[in-house]
Design a protein around this nucleic acid. Structure first.
Lengths: 156, 156
DNA sequence: GCAAATTATTTCAAGCTTAAAGTTTTATAT
DNA sequence: ATATAAAACTTTAAGCTTGAAATAATTTGC
């Protein structure tokens, strides 16, 4: 999905295809850089960061299915990542009284502290990597992407 | 990287962070949908499609290192994907006379035909999934993402 | 009350992904 | 010439990812 079928596609519908290719290349480029820095500076990974970021927003905890829905990844995927975070003491599972199928997942004290540090660095990196986009332009782009997505979400 | 540390981040640099989150969510959403359709309709995957798309643009073939640079993935990664495509008869490796370290990778006749069919469907899907973005808006967004990326590429 | 369907999660197999280490071949510097 | 470095690629280990199958608990329809 990184390249179009021809060097410079043209014709009806080609503008959207080109947009998609740019979108994908932009996010892959930034993603690769963030992944590398997370590894080098904090010896962690993007998926771990994603999970911790989601949990940081929800101090009361989240269900596994909430996590997977929010992160747009499969259920089984989240299981593995959470398993590793638990084994590292950054995240805890808590069985619930009401429904014994589910477990509330939340950051431990240690996980919360660790995340705060990483998140600060992360925000700085994003600011740096998107430095060529003015704040004004960032808001405009965000708006365009938001309206696109909210339209699209209606179909799933 | 899908979520910010807080529900609605605010403050200096937050606009870029929010942009990054939107960008990532948009591309993940579309990517997931395309991946699913590639699997269901053609029993193939996004990475295989990416490699074939790159090779389709280069009838004379590409080096492994060209492929990995173009696709923004690691060298070892491409090895595995190409291995599988070769075993399926869609791609062929050709040793070169000049430099025996390298091999030119290209689509087979069969691979080229198969890709043309898939690419047509793919383009239609993208047009559909980005249907809420007007062609005009698509061009504007593309321009913004292009200038961002060409600026950023200077740093790597 | 109880079978059937649904829900939440885990397990599994196959494939993707990276970074690092290893192999082979070519280029460079004495 | 010949060691040394560089380049192109593959292999490896660990982890990520999906979709499908399995498990366990809850809810629904009679």
């Amino acid at each position: 999905m990184v390249a179009g079928p021809l060097p410079t596609p043209s014709g009806p519908g080609k503008d959207r295809l080109r947009l998609w290719i740019r979108l994908l290349r932009a996010s892959r480029t930034i993603e690769a850089e963030l992944r590398e820095r997370l590894k080098k500076e904090f010896n962690t990974t993007l998926p771990r960061f994603d999970v911790m970021a989601a949990l940081y927003r929800a101090p009361e905890g989240m269900l596994m299915s909430d996590l997977s829905r929010f992160l747009l990844v499969s259920n089984g995927n989240v299981t593995g990542i959470v398993d590793r975070l638990v084994s590292e003491g950054l995240v805890a599972r808590a069985r619930r009284n009401g429904d014994r199928r589910t477990s509330m997942v939340r950051l431990t004290e240690e996980g919360s502290k660790a995340f705060a540090v990483i998140a600060a660095a992360h925000e700085g990196w994003v600011g740096e990597l998107l430095g060529n986009v003015s704040e004004e332009e960032a808001r405009r782009l965000t708006g365009m992407l938001t309206s696109f997505r909210s339209n699209w979400e209606g179909r799933e």
